[in-house]
Amino acid sequence: MSHFIKKALSDIRLNRFLNLVTIFTISLSILVVSVFMLFFENAGRVIEAWNQGGRAMVYLKDNFTKDMLLEIKEKINNVGNIQEMVFISKDEALDRLRKEVSPNSAFLKTLQGNPLPNAFEIKMKSYNNIEEVETFAKKIKEIEIVEDVEYGQGWLGKFLKIFNLFKITGYAMCGLFFLIALFITSNTVRLAFYSRKIEVEVMRLVGATETFIKAPFYMEGILQGFIGGILGLVILLVAYLMISSGITQGLSSYIYFDIRFLSIKTIILIILVSTFLGWFGCYLSLKQILK
């Protein structure tokens, strides 16, 4: 194994220019992909915060009595997509309100009785797009005793629509760059293969198996993908650090701006994908060349 890695590294060194171009192309593709990932991860976090994690409030009509509770719970449950449901009675709601505003505020003093409705606080299982949330709310509203359903505000819906448009563009761009990187990698392997025609011929003559012959090419492809992926992420990190320090210095006093770098999970995923890319490019071109 280490024999193959050593050989692959020395082959990369020998074919320096070609390999640098390949690694650079891969890293560029990875950069584009990870910029989108960075955007999505941060936007997703912001949306979740605004959306309070897919929360919806279901307000009940005044003629609600406690003995209906089980029946309504079941009806709501039947709508599906519910992760958590908590009943908040009028009194509890008032208690919460009292805790939130200062107890001797003029507002509370003028309050006569309890104007707050009984309600359910619902946490949805999935709330990735506004349509999902809207249909969910509509179905709940159909239940007789339900007065109103409140969920993310209108601007959230608009934002989600733009966000989803971005997502589609992002996927398309990622796919495009994936194909470009794949094409370049498989082309490099092909060129490497032809430049080592004598080597391959000799290996066959001395009784090397096809696996033994192909291994260095795979190793090279995998290394290119791996190095390219890391390079792309490093470029992104440098850009991120430069921009985010600029933002915090310039803007932090005006707005709360919190862009986080990619999570470890995403970083690992990106490196795995780009390593796979190197392998797959190699696989494709060797499949074409041999037989």
Binding site: L14, I198, E199, V202, V206, G207, T209
Partner: peptide, 24 residues
């Protein structure tokens, strides 16, 4: 074809043009 390498290992081969790998 998978057993061809085993056959080749029974031979030692020498050619007029040496067939050495130039970058090794």
């Amino acid at each position: 074809s998978s057993r061809l390498p085993l056959l080749r290992r029974r031979f030692g081969m020498v050619f007029q043009d040496f067939k050495l790998i130039p970058n090794r």
